[in-house]
C-alpha cells in the first residue's frame, strides 16, 4: 500500500470521509491491514472469518440447547 494512502487512514483529516467513517465506528486499522494484502488474500481471509462466525454460531446454538435440556431436568 502506498504510504500516502496509509497516512490518510492513520491520520484522518478533520471533516474528511475517512474521519467520518472513524467517527461512525469503522476500525481504520483493519482497512490498513486489508489494503496491505493482495485482493485474493482479502477474499480468502473473508472466507476464514465467515467460517469462524459459522462455528461460533453453531457452538452458541449447541450451548443454548444444552442449557434448555438441563433446565428441563
Amino acid at each position: 500500500m502506498s504510504r500516502k494512502r496509509e497516512e490518510k487512514l492513520l491520520n484522518p483529516k478533520p471533516g474528511s470521509k475517512i474521519a467520518e467513517a472513524q467517527d461512525y465506528g469503522i476500525d481504520l486499522t483493519q482497512l490498513i491491514e486489508n489494503l496491505r494484502l493482495s485482493p485474493s488474500e482479502r477474499i480468502k481471509r473473508n472466507d476464514d472469518a465467515a467460517n469462524s462466525m459459522v462455528r461460533f454460531a453453531e457452538a452458541m446454538r449447541a450451548a443454548k440447547s444444552e442449557r434448555r435440556q438441563e433446565e428441563k431436568l
Partner: peptide, 13 residues
C-alpha cells in the same frame, strides 16, 4: 456501514 467504508476507501485512493 459498508457505504462509510467505501467512501473512506475512495478518499484514500
Amino acid at each position: 456501514a459498508g457505504l462509510k467504508v467505501l467512501y473512506a476507501l475512495q478518499e484514500a485512493e
